[in-house]
């Protein structure tokens, strides 16, 4: 099965989640083709990084019209590449970019796509995928029998990074035409203070707070703790609705669905809609004054305590541990 993997890159580096996908594809015994898009002359430096994960071929689609992201331009180029390469499977890791343009690719290829998969295996011509629904309240096995090519996006951290596998593919340039770009990005504006922070959806560690934090200023104690352990700060819907945090920090069914290695919930009672967004975290810690809070039913470690006392103490202990 010829598998084409769309590899997203920013600032001259392939996204970790794209490499994670390549590292898994290398174990499937299929023919793996890595595909990257960009302006002419900007992609050559990516080949070495891609070759660490052993793709059979690397394809660069270069065009001046691809210097900035556009859903219509990227969709056309990826669909054209999938056709010309004869892709039987087309995969990408989930990001705000792939979520945006891949549905158009599916229509152009007259196929269906399973988005946000948390499990994916390819064995011979058999593709098995599982995707969460209702924000992870249930999981569905996908039937691709009518989808040719098979298309799926996979969540970061879901498959796990596999061992590197040295490859020596020479990057080939594809004939590329993004067509008329109607919805192209004019400018990207970073959120103040958000530089270098890993997004919640890709974070390895998350420290989240609920309405019990009482104010946006009080989130400082969670930010301090997050800094110590290189975590990203999240919040419950109650805290977001109360105006303590922006919606982009919300974890839950109407916010972000996250799957970090460590999720620490401070003063979050555990409404169904919050649990749905974080239950696939590998390890969950809950700190709450109410020992009957539903969050403790989903947690691995529970601490019944006032978060205002506990968070600084836990931070101190982390600092002690990490100094050694």
């Amino acid at each position: 099965m010829k598998t084409v993997i769309y590899c997203e890159h920013h600032n001259g580096k392939i996204k970790k989640s794209s490499l994670e996908l390549l590292s898994n594809a290398a174990t499937w015994g299929t023919e793996v083709h890595a595909l990257a898009l960009g302006a002419p002359g900007t992609l050559d430096g990516l080949a070495a990084e891609l070759n660490e994960y052993g793709p059979h071929a690397i394809h660069f689609a270069e065009h001046a019209g691809l210097a900035h992201y556009s859903s219509d331009g990227f969709a056309k180029v990826v669909a054209d590449a999938a056709k010309s390469l004869g892709a039987e499977i087309l995969l990408a890791s989930v990001s705000t970019q792939t979520k945006d343009f891949l549905p158009r690719v599916a229509v152009k290829l007259d196929t269906g796509m399973a988005s946000d998969c948390t499990a994916l295996t390819v064995a011979g011509s058999n593709v098995q995928a599982t995707r969460p629904m209702y924000s992870g309240k249930c999981f569905a096995s996908v039937d691709f029998s009518k989808a040719k090519p098979v298309m799926a996006t996979i969540r970061p951290n879901a498959l796990g990074m596999k061992a590197k596998k040295a490859g020596s593919a020479t990057a080939t340039k594809l004939a590329t035409d993004p067509g008329t770009i109607r919805a192209g990005v004019k400018e990207v504006v970073a959120k103040a203070g958000a530089q270098n922070k890993v997004d919640l959806t890709e974070a390895e560690r998350i420290v989240s707070g609920g309405r019990s934090l009482k104010s946006s200023e009080n989130f400082k104690i969670l930010e301090d703790l997050a800094t110590t352990i290189s975590a990203t700060v999240g919040a419950s819907r109650a805290a977001v609705d109360a105006g303590f945090r922006p919606h982009s920090d919300q974890v839950g069914q109407t916010g972000k669905v996250v799957s970090p290695s460590l999720y620490m919930a401070f003063g979050i009672s555990g409404a169904i809609q919050h649990l749905a967004g974080m239950r696939s975290s590998k390890l969950i810690v809950a700190v709450n004054t109410d020992q009957n809070a539903p969050i403790f039913q989903k947690a691995d470690y529970g601490v019944v305590a006032d978060l205002f006392e506990a968070a600084p103490k836990i931070n101190e202990e982390f600092k002690k541990l990490l100094q050694h």
Binding site: A183, V185, V188, A190, E202
Partner: peptide, 10 residues
């Protein structure tokens, strides 16, 4: 809205 709360302008 994209990753990290950053904004793409169109």
């Amino acid at each position: 809205e994209i990753e990290g709360g950053a904004i793409e302008k169109y």
